[in-house]
Amino acid sequence: MDDYKFLFKVVLVGNAGVGKTCLVRRFTQGLFPPGQGATIGVDFMIKTVELENEKVKLQIWDTAGQERFRSITQSYYRSAHALILVYDISSQPTFDCLQDWLREIEEYASNKVLRVLVGNKTDREDREIPTSVGEDFANRHNMYFVETSAKEAENVERLFMVIASELMEQARSKELPRYETPALSSRSTSVGDGGCCGGRFS
């Protein structure tokens, strides 16, 4: 059934309203939901992409109700391979909060996690954060940078494809932390052997 070669967990964070859910849905479903309400009952979405003739499965975790008050559980960051930090280019406050988000990421995510800064909503006329400012911030913190519009489908595909190919490269060169595949396969009977391997059940 699952014939993918790689599985990566990608996690999104950023202030409320910056467009995290819209980015995920644009990428996984190819649409821009008109009245995006708080999503209920969905904790991650899945999209399988093909890269260099390999199937790569991306598990994209969006924050849930807890996010509104910045009370994400630290376990949310566990075993993430890539982290997307989103702000809204038309909203200075969402940019100002990036520092706080970074602090939280440093605290809980793995050192090796791939980090990407995303300035979303480029279609908007009322830009407050010039591209160069976002770029600078990303450079200073050793992050990839891209500006997107979930609405106009600009750079969204590219964002995730770059992440996928970067992670694939890391995996091939074995730099990637070797986690048991996080939180998948709800039906399959898995779980490690008696040795020192991790156990995950389903």
Binding site: I40, D43, A64, S75
Partner: peptide, 20 residues
């Protein structure tokens, strides 16, 4: 400490509000 958090995550995913 991960275990209570796993339950909190489910609560949040189904619309529960969190405030530390």
């Amino acid at each position: 400490g991960e275990i209570p958090q796993a339950f909190c995550r489910l609560c949040a995913v189904f619309g529960g509000l969190y405030h530390l």
